[in-house]
Design a protein around this nucleic acid. Structure first.
Lengths: 156, 156
DNA sequence: TTGTCTTTGACCTTTCCTGACCTTCTAACA
DNA sequence: TGTTAGAAGGTCAGGAAAGGTCAAAGACAA
């Protein structure tokens, strides 16, 4: 975890945790200055770490007085997260995206670390190898089924 | 027992025993440097000595700041149980037998009710419909993978 | 000798980082 | 009012920094 992108990620998530607004505003060039890197490195971090799947929204504005705004997305209240998740999953789900989604469930404390590890290993698809073709579609199905199971009232 | 692969194996297992995290993280090129060998020699050691059968799991990440992570699988009572389970599962696993095994795990308090429900729903294979042929073989693979995940020492 | 285990090196894939160049916005100025 | 300079942020391609794969050569035991 010693690389630059990871450190910037941790830094941003930390201040995002500390704020009560649910979002933070910052200047790209300033942040780049603090980490002594080029401004586009910030975009790289935002593009790879602060995606919608992982629960973030990034807005920005150019020109004088421009800024970056990183918004933390909740999963809604009480069972609403099921719907949000299903939307995000869609018909196709890559392994990277599924990992992001599962991490987010952990962050929201909707699944435990152990459960998350289980889900990830099942969705990784190492077992099927080349046997199964349409892996992304299958992964989407499985993820949804798992969500359904997790929402069963008798499991609480 | 004086060959290079054996020495690297011993070295890694020694530090792996000493850690309380249940895993170690290292850089392939760095380790290769310490033993004055080519980096791919490390892969050879990992592939032949740190397999799931022998109680280890290896994860890695490429690119700048990449790493290798060797995870210890439980060697205690639970671990032995896992070994028995793996034998029991074999190459084919019917739905009835898998449900039986999962219930047994619940009985032994090795998995929670929620986890059991998740495993069952994944193994039920409702999602795949007729798409996949050799469902009993796949079920066996998945069950083993799940057991492996549950025995990871870094999840305790 | 033969078959298995080890070691090496050439080449590949993924992830990260940088810099050059582009687009958008504001504000001052003619 | 229209123009334009400067101040943001955006994009993209290329190089660097990891780890992965594979086949061939070497070492060694049966």
């Amino acid at each position: 975890m010693g690389n630059l992108a990871d450190r910037i990620e941790v830094y941003l998530k930390r201040i995002l945790e500390q704020t009560s607004e649910g979002y933070i505003i910052l200047q790209r060039s300033e942040l780049a200055g603090e980490f002594s890197c080029v401004p586009s490195q910030i975009n790289y971090v935002l593009d790879t770490r602060f995606t919608v799947d992982r629960g973030y929204l990034v807005e920005s504005r150019r020109g004088g007085g421009g800024y970056l705004r990183i918004i933390r997305l909740g999963l809604g209240i009480e069972g609403q997260y099921q719907q949000v998740m299903r939307q995000l999953i869609g018909e196709q789900l890559s392994r990277e995206r599924s990992n992001g989604l599962v991490d987010r469930l952990v962050g929201e404390e909707l699944v435990t670390i152990r459960e998350a590890a289980m889900i990830k290993c099942v969705l990784s698809g190492k077992d099927l190898g080349g046997k199964f073709k349409d892996w992304d579609a299958l992964r989407a199905c499985l993820m949804k089924t798992i969500l359904t199971t997790l929402s069963r009232d008798d499991l609480l």
